[in-house]
Design a protein around this nucleic acid. Sequence first.
RNA 1: GGGCUCGUGGUCUAGUUGGUUAUGACGCGGCCUUUACAAGGCCGAGAUCGGUGGUUCGACUCCGCCCGAGCCCA
Length: 873
Amino acid sequence: MTELAESYDPTTLEAKWREEWADSELYRYDDDETTDTDTQYVIDTPPPYPTGDFHIGNALGWCYMDFAARYHRLQGENVSFPQGWDCHGLPTEVKVEENQGIRRTDVSREEFRELCIEHTEGQIDAMKETMQRLGFSQDWEQEFQTMDPDYWAKTQRSFVEMAEKGYVHRDEHPVNWCPRCETAIADAEVENVDSQGTLATVRFSGIDNDDLEIATTRPELLAACVGMAVDPDDERYADRIGDSFEVPLFGQEVELIADEAVDGEFGTGAVMICTFGDKQDVDWWAEYDLDLRPVVTEDGRLDESVAEFGGLDLDEAKAEITTALQKEGYLEDEEPIEQSVGACWRCDTPIEILSKEQWFVRVDQDEILSKAKEIEWVPEHMYGRLEEWTEGMDWDWVISRQRVFATPIPAWSCDDCGHWHIATLDDLPAKPTEDDPATECPECGASEWTGETDVMDTWMDSSISALHAAGWPEESFEPVQLREQGHDIIRTWAFYTILRTAALEDEKPWEEALINGMVLGTDGNKMSKSKDNSVAPIDVVEEQSADAFRQAIALGGQPGSDIQFQHKEVTSASRFLTKLWNITRFASDHLDAADEAEPSYTDTDRWIHSKCARIADDVAADMDEHRFDRALRTVREFVWHDLADDYLELVKGRLYEGTPEEQAAARQTLSTVLSASIRMLAPFSPFLAEETYRHLPGTSGSVHAAGWPELDAEDESVEARGERIAAVASAVRAWKSEAGMALNADLDRVEIYPDDGIDEFDTGDLRATVNAPIEVAAGEPDIEMVPVETDPDHSTIGPKFRDQAGAVVGALEDADPGDIAAQKREQGEIELDANGEVVVLDGDAVDVRHEQRAAGETVEVLDADGATVLVFP
RNA sequence: GGGCUCGUGGUCUAGUUGGUUAUGACGCGGCCUUUACAAGGCCGAGAUCGGUGGUUCGACUCCGCCCGAGCCCA
């Protein structure tokens, strides 16, 4: 094998492989229809929003996907790891307006779209660069952008098919409205933010009756007041239900109703009902068949029709109306109050509820939940998030947006009768603002159409990502294997994807949903630029390496939990990578020689080989359940402590001075185990794995096209012999170190006294390592060993003696350890007096710890896991 | 207010059918040039497992309550 460079230099090494991989077909998905679908592993990769910044939160999710993708490739599966971009949306529109110094209405729709596309492409390039630096293995042949006509034609198709199945309707209905973005938004896009408000107590004059005071935080909506409400159980108002009142300043007459939803503890216990202050108002308005008095405009002002205050924006209106109420004597009280208001999740502007004609997708809660239940959620409790959200849905999903840069809604209204015509599949992709359908109106026969200018919610684009990844609509749909995403978007992306896949294909979208947590900064808080605790992945890659960064992410915690990013984990990973580099370098000095001799394996060889087989199974099991943290920990532990500390040290003697047969055995074992270790590490640290793997003898091509290690395990007794050898070597090494001796210092001899029956094992490797003749002796060592302590095995004694166990252990502690040791040695069982009752327990249930006392000859006594080791220096 | 998740050495973390001396990392202190590696090795200090009550022969683990943190929802 060729020798590795003297030192590990991640920067050049990672750059080299990045370039080689980019030009290769290593990660290509085989889309041939003849390919066995049983060995497919398709990932529904999140299409991120092209902000231009691939941050550490993204990196967490992509690391998980890449670990899974690379692992499943090693398992011989045909992996599809596509990458899309969720291009449409308001933030890009705003950015383009800013950069170009224009309003979107200054240019044509088409021109504005073009500017958005151009801007988006630049953002994508920047994020792609970071992804590649991090070593992710997407198949770039499958890259897609939701703004491509190919893709948005699919979005339109999904809309048309859903309309045909009766999922789509166009109606006037109250919707959440962002007055800054000037568009309808869905429930999922409303976030509740806590704020400081003012609770005003306003007196309504009774008509032929006494006055009544209501409490409100929104006096600016008085003009929209259509009713008043109190709790039916509220005795203060028991005889007032049905009374009429006059709304202050605006004069309309409203009636007092009783409804249990009113909180009698809040304010005066009486509230006003407006169209619309909040969702509760919408419920009352519908239930009691109240008037509709819309007073808020799409840009967040009072409508011109509102007497005196028309045209004011809502904040001004609040101030002026409050002043007017005071002047007229209607304002009884004002006090500050903590309140939670709905806000647009993109711009934090408080939302309004306006009644508008919009396009809706029907939310079928039962259908969604039944599909969601079929999905395996990792971790399991994340299903609860989706369930809670789904059960709480009370409005259909409003999918129309009054924007430009998004997928057009393929529909037209008839100029004569107003009938809405939805495109047929043949019309797609359709640009309704430019082209008319070539049909007559089925209602009235007219042929003049006006295209819909509303566009779709961008979640309509991204919620078919699973379908797209599975080749829809060309190929028949089967759930894909994996969805990976953050828990913050369960109510949106996961929810909508399940809804859409159920509606279109009557299927769950994925077999498994792997949900990641958030990445916290070093101070334990969620990372944010304003808190100055954020870390850019690209900086870590430049300072240390992508390979180390990826390990740090894997070890941050088990998937699903929030992880705190720790530079020390990167440091520790770097050390491990250097260690592996040096192990490979050592191997490269020895694995060159052609082995013609028949290998003669020792217990040491059989042990590491067998242990490696078991480790490979354990790690595979962890990878199968996405326990990346445990998998990597296991690999690291094995490589560092078993392979490097123990095995390598034990076979050095043979490698340098053994017979051809002995050397052949050591070389082959080392080669096999190192190769297996590197393959197990490959999903986590693909760059170093690639470099080291290609230096091993007998390998060809990339480690990422290799197979998962398949080694034969030996039976336990074989492994136990090796463990014995390693434990003795380790004990002697530690003792030499402590005694201030050179580790290769000569010793007179070493005697081993096993007390667990493992007394036959090869001693050749051990002799070379500890640099002393080895004797394995039966019985007790010939020095004075004093039993000093008993050590009961609770897992044997507990179940056997149940409520007597405490007394038995107590008796054991009180007994003379020498007596226990003697009974154990002579009878194989131990008789005790436990609180006056004689009990007999098996000798194996008690260990006796010995201590060396005053020996004549100079000797050191070491404990090596079930064996006593005597060292004669 | 409801729901979910979580409290383990200075810091981060492992420990899902209850059972030896509670895992590892980083950091800290000490010792050591050993034919892969000082970017290393060895040793050490450091935790009443958030608190409290219960179930049990036995609780970091199961249950109740309390305290604290975070997330989601209202």
